[in-house]
Design a protein around this nucleic acid. Structure first.
Length: 114
DNA sequence: TTGCTGACCGACG
DNA sequence: CCGTCGGCCAGCA
């Protein structure tokens, strides 16, 4: 809706269920800007000072790689959180990423109708 | 107001 | 396989 791009990102990320992950591109595409995946990442960076209950560790790049792990304060935190949710991380990459992948375009339908 | 930056993605050589 | 470039758009100095 007529919400800020950031707010939309926070909303989508906040809707990611436990044990699931999504990608920046997927969120960007859900917001209607497929090419603006960078904005999603930038929004996450801003979320650092906006929202605290934001499961950013469930957001990774298209390769399932934990690109933003260094923004969690210390490397290893992100994969630790993921492994805490039953997601196996190998070499900074999510194992069976495709299996854990949570696509907002497909999963969200009547969840976000505000 | 202008310009740089950024946790990405995909294409090209 | 790896490096580089363009694109997308919002926030900040």
């Amino acid at each position: 809706m007529s919400q800020s791009f950031f707010k939309s990102v926070y909303d989508v990320v906040g809707l990611i269920p436990f044990g699931r992950v999504t990608s920046y591109g997927a969120i960007a595409e859900y917001l209607g800007s497929r090419g603006s995946a960078r904005m999603v990442g930038w929004a996450m960076n801003a979320s650092h000072t906006e929202v605290i209950n934001l499961p950013a560790h469930r957001v990774v790049n298209r390769n399932g790689l934990l690109t933003g792990k260094r923004h969690f304060g210390a490397p290893g935190i992100m994969e630790q959180l993921l492994s805490s949710e039953g997601i196996e991380v190998k070499d900074d990459r999510i194992v069976d990423f495709d299996k854990y992948f949570w696509n907002p375009l497909t999963e969200i339908r009547n969840t976000k109708y505000e």
